[in-house]
Design a protein around this nucleic acid. Sequence first.
DNA 1: AAATTAATCAACCGCGACTGT
DNA 2: AACAGTCGCGGTTGATTAATT
Length: 250
Amino acid sequence: MSSDKTDLKKGSWSAEEDQKLISYIEKYGIWNWSQMPRFAGLARNGKSCRLRWMNYLKPDVKRGNFSKEEEEIILHSHSVLGNRWSAIASKLPGRTDNDVKNYWHTHLKKRAIKHKPASETTEQNDMTDPSPTFKADNTEEILESANDHTNYVSGSWFPFEAHIPSSSYTITNYKDHHDLGFTSEYHDAGSPGTIDDLQLFWDQLCPVENLEIANSHMDVSSDPFSQDSYNDPMYNIFNDDYNTDILPHQ
DNA sequence: AAATTAATCAACCGCGACTGT
DNA sequence: AACAGTCGCGGTTGATTAATT
C-alpha cells in the first residue's frame, strides 16, 4: 500500500524536499513532527523532518568553520559536561548538537586526549562512555549553570528559555522571523515573575494594541495547541489569520 | 591518472523522558 | 497506574569528498 511506512523515503534530502519542508513550516509553523510530513507532502517520517530542520534548514543554523573561540568553548565544556552535546551546543549560538559532536570527533578529540594528564587518559570521555566525568563537589551547581542558557546564549531573545527544561514545549512561528531578526521558539516558563518578560517580548514582537497574553499561558499544563485551546489568545497569535491580518510581513 | 585511504558530516537508530488519556 | 504518542538526545553508520600513494 502506498501509505505503508516502508514507502517512506530515507537518505539524503533533495532540494525539492527541503523547499517543501521550509514552505510548510513558514506557513504553518511546527505543530507535530510526526503528523507534519503528511500535510507537507513529504514521504518522510517526522524524525527525519525534525532532524533536517534542526540541523540544516532552520534559519539560524550557522554554517562554516568553527572559530578558535568556539573550539575553546567546546573543549572546556566537554571537560565539564562530558558528551552532553546538546548542552554544549547551547553555548554556541547557531551550532547544533550534531555539528558539535561531529566537530569533536573529527577535530578536537585527539587534542583533548593529548592535553589530558596521564592519569586521566585511560579514562573515558570518548564516544564509548556517555557519562560526564564530573570531579568537582559542586556537580549540581555546574549542571545547573549548564542548563541556564541565559548566561551564555548571546543574541538570545528569550529571557527564560530553558529554565524549565523538563516541561518546555515549543511554539514556532518562522514566518516572520527573517524580518524580525530572531527565531521564535517559545519554551513555556513556569518560573514565577516571567509573565512580564513574556508580555514584553510579545509587545516587541507584535506591537499591537489590546493583544493580551493570558496568565494561563504560564501554566505548564496549558498547551496552546490542544483541542480546547482554540479560544486561547496564544493560539491566535500563531494561526494563519492572525499572521495575515496583523503582522506586517508576509 | 587511477587507486586507495582518510576525513567529513548528514542522516539514521534506539532509547529514555515527558505528557496526555 | 498503565499505556501510547511525541520529542530530543547521544551513538553510530554510510555516502561523499579530499588527500595521499
